[in-house]
């Protein structure tokens, strides 16, 4: 069966195949969240939807930003902006490992020639107040995905438990396509009339953002934005559940969570600018976690969070 699967030829083909595969397996294929986040986990389709009792299945690409990882487009596999592919299924199905391995087959990894291993790797996000147990998945010694059973998010025990899969798309695609430098990777079909490499699309932006992240971003403005986002999150959640205009019960968990995401990203930028000391670091992380926790508290009081009036 493996022989019938052809090798993908480009970065985008790998993404398309993952989308098709998980759509066939019944996931809602969602779009990236329209805010800057550090990882696919921050998308409310994962963070918030892993809470509460209602079943959920979603898959999506999430552009992710890690300002400290910027290398001006020169490092073969480090980027300040990259893509994660994220799958979240609640409750985790008993054959999740098999489903996952099927997705590797779908992108052209021949299981009869490669050595796939599940190696212990427990996941923890101090900023989200979340942790889970699982593995990093190795293919011939290279980490190609994270596989996690969420146990707690925003300080809430997960009941039922969600299974989360995270693929680092550039690294995985470089491996499947046999490319050594991310910028050399074909972005679209290499035989297309206008063939574009990853470098054609992103080299310049990597340079621009690396410079801005490390040396130019206005730290005073960022610090102010952090505090504003923090204050706004709290202000939103302090509103009464009942909306006086519509007369309906509307808990504003998502707008508040947007502010939490914002604070988290600003913290990452401040970190890249080198203005946060080791001791302050812990305190900032704690402040973001406090926001995530309050948003989680609010979400479980909404319908999607399993609240029944």
């Amino acid at each position: 069966m493996d022989q019938t699967i052809t090798k993908p030829r480009s970065f985008q083909e790998i993404i398309l195949r993952l989308q098709t595969y998980w759509a066939e397996k019944g996931c809602a294929v969602m779009q990236p969240y329209d805010m800057e986040v550090g990882a696919g986990t921050f998308h409310p389709a994962t963070t918030l939807r892993s809470l509460g009792s209602r079943p959920w299945a979603a898959a999506y690409v999430q552009p992710s930003r890690r300002p400290t990882d910027g290398r001006y487009g020169e490092n073969p596999n480090r980027l300040q902006h990259y893509y994660q592919y994220q799958v979240l299924i609640k409750p985790s199905p008993p054959d999740l490992q098999e489903l996952y391995l099927g997705s590797l087959r779908a992108i052209g990894i021949d299981m009869s020639l490669h050595d796939i291993r599940f190696v212990e790797d427990d996941w923890e996000s101090p900023t989200l107040g979340a942790w889970g147990l699982g593995w990093e998945v190795w293919c011939d010694g290279m980490e190609v995905s994270q596989f996690t059973y969420f146990q707690q998010v925003g300080g809430h025990d997960c009941h039922p438990v969600s299974g989360e899969l995270t693929y680092g798309l550039e690294r995985l695609a470089m491996y499947v396509l046999g490319v050594d430098h991310v910028m050399d990777m074909p972005y679209n079909d290499p035989d297309a009339p206008i063939a574009l490499s990853y470098g054609d699309v992103f080299r310049q932006t990597e340079q621009e953002y690396s410079r801005w992240n490390f040396d130019v971003a206005d730290t005073d403005v960022l610090l102010r934005h952090f505090e504003e986002a923090e204050a706004e999150c709290a202000r939103i959640l302090n509103h009464a559940e009942d909306d006086p205009k519509t007369g309906k019960r509307i808990v504003m968990a998502h707008p508040a969570y947007d502010q939490c995401i914002k604070a988290s990203h600003i913290f990452n930028l401040l970190d890249a600018r080198g203005v946060i000391s080791v001791t302050e670091r812990q305190s900032y992380i704690g402040r973001v976690r406090a926001l995530a926790k309050r948003c989680a508290d609010a979400f479980v009081l909404t319908e999607a969070g399993g609240y029944a009036a």
Binding site: P91, S92, P93, P94, D122, G132, L133, G134, Y149, Q151, C158, H159, P160, V161, G163
Partner: peptide, 15 residues
């Protein structure tokens, strides 16, 4: 360290 999975309540090291 142990964990739950799916909709069950049993704890084991992995499912």
């Amino acid at each position: 360290k142990s964990m739950r999975w799916g909709a069950g309540s049993l704890r084991w090291v992995r499912p």
